[in-house]
Simulated assay, not measured.
Amino acid sequence: MDGPRGVDGPRGVDGRGTPVGRRLVLGMLAAGAAGIAAGPVLQRAYDSTLGAAAQNDPTGLSGLLPAGGGFRYYSVTGSVPHKNERTYRLTVDGLVRRPTSYRLTDLRRLPQTRIVHDVQCVTGWRVPGTPFEGVRLATLLDAAGVSPRAKAVRFTCFDGAYSESLTLAQARRRDVLVALRMQDKPLGHDHGGPVRLYVAPMYFYKSAKWLSGITVTDRVEPGFWENRGYDVDAWVGRSNGRDDAPTS
């Protein structure tokens, strides 16, 4: 999810409702720059701290900070629960013959696909050559037995707020994954883990974090950011008024 934080939430206040001043903003930016300059060990500690802070940041200011690997931390809710091996479930339902619930171990047993593409955010930042690995979404759809009436797929997330959608043809592309790994590591919570959607050829807001539900539908249902003005068909360089180079 890489839309701008704070579109519908309070701006310019901290968690206690008090104003956030220019000094704090500059201090946060300086801390981020210092972490990067200090080297990888301090940067990893800084990234961890930033990820935790971003989950409880109603201002969106943490999204301004230079996070590790070029990524930014975004959430559309005040906090997101953590899921693990025991508590995580991914459901596939809707217009299918065989509704299914997957655990992490189930997903790991399925054939894994690794793809490497640039990641492009609609707000302008780009991270080149980012590996994602997981199960092709088409594999899960085929296992569920999609109804002939199906036209689209809707995605929901365990943050309780975010949603996304793709047409059925888009969902079946070979570069659309239910991702379990990113940058050759298990997908961490701050990057949408343990499981997220990855839609390589589209702006990153289509790659829903904290994925918990895949529902096959008879029409495209606009997702969280589409309901706030972003394009539904978010092809990189061909939507949202941007001309970025394609990512896939």
Rank of each mutant, 00 (worst) to 15 (best):
R97P: 00
Y102R: 05
T100I: 03
Q112I: 09
A171F: 11
L90E: 06
G160C: 05
A45E: 15
L61K: 00
G32N: 04
L197H: 05
T139H: 10
D118P: 02
G9R: 15
R114M: 10
D2Y: 12
T167G: 14
H189I: 02
A37I: 10
G213Y: 09
L166Y: 02
Y46F: 14
L107D: 04
L177K: 05
G39N: 11
L197Q: 05
V122T: 14
G192K: 05
Y73W: 05
Y198E: 03
S62H: 08
A150K: 07
T18K: 13
T123G: 02
P131V: 08
V127K: 00
A150V: 13
V96F: 08
L26F: 04
R86G: 00
A67M: 02
M28D: 08
P58Y: 01
P186H: 01
H189Q: 12
H117A: 08
S79D: 14
F204N: 00
T113V: 15
D233T: 10
Y205W: 11
F158T: 06
P58M: 04
V236E: 05
G94A: 11
V195I: 10
R136Q: 12
A179N: 11
P128C: 03
S147R: 03
R16L: 13
R89H: 09
A37K: 07
L166R: 01
F158E: 07
V41P: 01
G21A: 06
P201F: 13
A45T: 10
R103W: 04
A245G: 07
G39P: 11
I214W: 05
S101V: 15
V119D: 02
L187Q: 04
D231W: 08
W210E: 03
H82P: 00
L42S: 06
L197W: 09
D244T: 04
A138R: 12
L137H: 07
T123V: 13
T130C: 09
R238E: 05
D2N: 13
T123N: 01
V220G: 03
E226D: 01
T130M: 12
G3D: 10
C157S: 15
A30I: 02
L197P: 10
Y102P: 04
P81T: 07
V119P: 00
W210T: 01
T18Q: 14
Y102K: 07
V135N: 07
Y74W: 14
S101D: 10
T130A: 12
A53D: 05
V13S: 03
Q183S: 13
P111E: 03
S248C: 15
D233M: 13
L61N: 12
P222A: 06
P4A: 14
R114G: 04
T77N: 01
D106P: 04
R114F: 08
Q43H: 15
E85G: 00
E164H: 10
P4E: 14
A245Y: 06
G15F: 08
F224H: 12
E85S: 04
V96H: 05
G134W: 10
G124M: 00
D233Q: 14
A152E: 02
V220Q: 07
P128R: 06
V76R: 07
L180W: 01
V146P: 08
Y230K: 09
G39M: 14
V135W: 11
D142T: 14
P40D: 07
V119T: 03
G3A: 12
A208S: 13
W225N: 02
G94S: 10
